[in-house]
Write a protein that binds this DNA or RNA. Structure first.
Length: 256
DNA sequence: ATGGCTAACATGGTTAGA
C-alpha cells in the first residue's frame, strides 16, 4: 500500500496537477490538505474519473481536508471528536484495514500570537484523540501537513529559523508528545538524502535554492511502521508550472 | 529590507499562508 500526503493549496487550482501526479505516480491512498473550497464544490466526478473514492471535509477559503483512495473508504469521521473546532482540519477513514487520520495542523503565524496558542491547544487535542484511536486500531497512520519541522536537519537554515514558528521548542515538544503515544515518523525509518524538504516558500527562489522545511509527515503506529518499506518526498510536482508550495510525501507499506 | 509569492474574495486591496 502506498500512502501519501499532499497540501495542494487550493484543490480547484491544483486539480490538474493532482490528476497528472496520480497518473505518473499511482498511490493507494492520499490525504489532501488546504482544499479551500466548500463541500458542495468538491470535484467528486473528476476525482472519480481518476479512479478514486473520496471522503471530504471542506471549508470556504481556508483549510479543508480529504482522503482519496483506490479502495472504498469506510467509517469516515470528521474533526476531532469532542472538540468543537470551527476550522475544518481533520478527516479519518479506514481503507483495507488501515485507519488513516489526515490532518492539517494550524500554521501558528508567529510565536506568542493567538494563532500560536490555538496551534498548541489543537496539537494537545490531536494527541489525546490519537491516543484513543491507537487503542482501537492496531494499524493507524496519522498523515498530513504538521506545520512543524521535527528537527534542525529538517530546516534549510536552522540558525535563521531558530525559535520561530514551525521550529520553536513548544511546537517540537507537542510533536514529540504526539509521537510518544506510539507513532513513528516513517521518513526517518530509512536513510535519506540530506536536505530533504517538503515545503518551499513561493518567494525568493526558495525552491530553486532548496530553502525549505520538512513539515509534511507520514506517521505510523508500531504495527504499521513495521511493514513500512520506504518513504520519500516527491519533488516533481513542485517543478511544474503554478505549483503548490508543498510536495507530496509517499510512504510504502508491505501489508499483502 | 517585515520585502519577496500565491490564493481567496472581490474586482484593488486585504487576509492568510509558512
Amino acid at each position: 500500500m502506498k500512502l501519501a500526503t499532499w497540501n495542494v493549496n487550493s484543490l480547484r487550482v491544483r486539480l490538474a496537477h493532482l490528476g497528472d501526479w496520480l497518473a505518473a505516480s499511482p498511490v493507494d491512498v492520499v490525504g489532501l490538505q488546504e482544499l479551500k473550497l466548500p463541500d458542495e464544490d468538491f470535484p467528486q466526478s473528476q476525482i472519480e474519473a481518476f479512479g478514486l473514492h473520496a471522503a471530504w471535509f471542506g471549508q470556504r477559503t481556508y483549510n479543508g481536508v480529504a482522503i482519496l483512495s483506490r479502495a472504498p473508504i469506510v467509517d469516515v469521521t470528521t474533526g476531532i471528536p469532542g472538540f468543537d473546532d470551527p476550522q475544518r482540519r481533520v478527516i479519518a477513514g479506514t481503507v483495507d484495514g488501515v485507519r488513516v487520520i489526515n490532518v492539517y495542523v494550524p500554521n501558528g503565524q508567529s510565536v506568542g500570537s493567538d494563532k500560536y496558542a490555538y496551534k498548541l491547544d489543537w496539537l494537545a487535542r490531536l494527541r489525546d484523540y490519537v491516543a484513543r484511536e491507537l487503542t482501537r486500531y492496531e494499524r493507524l497512520a496519522v498523515i498530513g501537513d504538521y506545520n512543524i519541522a521535527p528537527e534542525d536537519r529538517d530546516v534549510h537554515d536552522p540558525a535563521k529559523w531558530e525559535g520561530s514558528v514551525h521550529v520553536s521548542a513548544p511546537e517540537r515538544a507537542a510533536l514529540q508528545d504526539l509521537l510518544s503515544t506510539g507513532l513513528h515518523d516513517t521518513f526517518r525509518l530509512f536513510e535519506q538524502p540530506p536536505e530533504t524538504y517538503s515545503w518551499w516558500d513561493y518567494r525568493m527562489g526558495a525552491f530553486r535554492r532548496n530553502h525549505g522545511l520538512r513539515i509534511d509527515l507520514v506517521l505510523a503506529s508500531a504495527a504499521l511502521s513495521r511493514s513500512c518499506i520506504g518513504c520519500h518526498v516527491d519533488r516533481t510536482p513542485r517543478t511544474w508550472e503554478r505549483p503548490s508550495d508543498h510536495a507530496p510525501v509517499v510512504a510504502t507499506f508491505d501489508i499483502g
